[in-house]
């Protein structure tokens, strides 16, 4: 793990203690949905630098509260996004982002697949916003409790919106002659 140059081993160890614990938590949360290791490493390196600049001694680094590390990480991530957008570059693709995408074997199959995608996206676009966002999140692989967590909703509200949204999706697909045996 790289650290800012010109710091003592003691400070380096203190930085690693503080940052690595936080990094484990971030990875445990983000690993299911394609969090990019390269992006996280870039954020953590920036966090090390910020902590090092803010704290002149290893004792001060070790005494930092978790909330300080968290604020430094959020701020570093926001700055990373701004810099990348300014450069016109997207974030690094995670290694397994595309591994579950089906292989299309012929031009005809590809055209059929594109047509189906177009129709499904078209149906999703007709769902009212509060349900549509939930349906999109569900289709992106998030579970109900993750949706509730992100939106700050109760479990009951989330379940209601998701079920109604999936019912909207099922009805729309049925009207287009597409059979979906999902959990609406």
């Amino acid at each position: 793990m790289s650290v800012p140059s010109g710091i003592t081993e003691e400070m380096s160890a203190a930085l690693e203690d503080v940052v690595s614990r936080f990094a484990r938590m971030v990875r445990s949360v983000g690993v299911r949905h394609g969090l990019s290791e390269a992006d996280l490493d870039e954020v953590l390196q920036e966090v090390r630098i910020r902590l090092w600049q803010a704290c002149p001694t290893s004792e001060q680094i070790r005494a930092l509260g978790t909330s300080y590390v968290y604020r430094a990480a959020i701020s570093a991530a926001r700055d990373l996004l701004r810099r990348r957008r300014a450069r016109g570059a997207a974030l690094t693709d995670s290694v397994d982002e595309h591994t579950n995408i089906a292989v299309v074997t012929s031009a005809s199959d590809e055209a059929d697949a594109r047509d189906l995608e177009h129709q499904v996206l078209g149906v999703i676009d007709t769902i009212p916003l509060s349900r549509r966002a939930v349906v999109r999140m569900y289709l992106s692989g998030y579970e109900r409790d993750e949706i509730a967590e992100l939106m700050g909703w109760s479990e009951a509200k989330t379940r209601n919106l998701l079920y109604r949204g999936l019912a909207d999706l099922r009805d729309g697909l049925t009207r287009k002659g597409i059979t979906w045996e999902g959990q609406a």
Binding site: G30, H33, D39, Y70
Partner: peptide, 13 residues
Amino acid sequence: QELELLRAIEQAG
């Protein structure tokens, strides 16, 4: 992907 980075940090915090 950007949201996932921020979400993971926020939840970890």
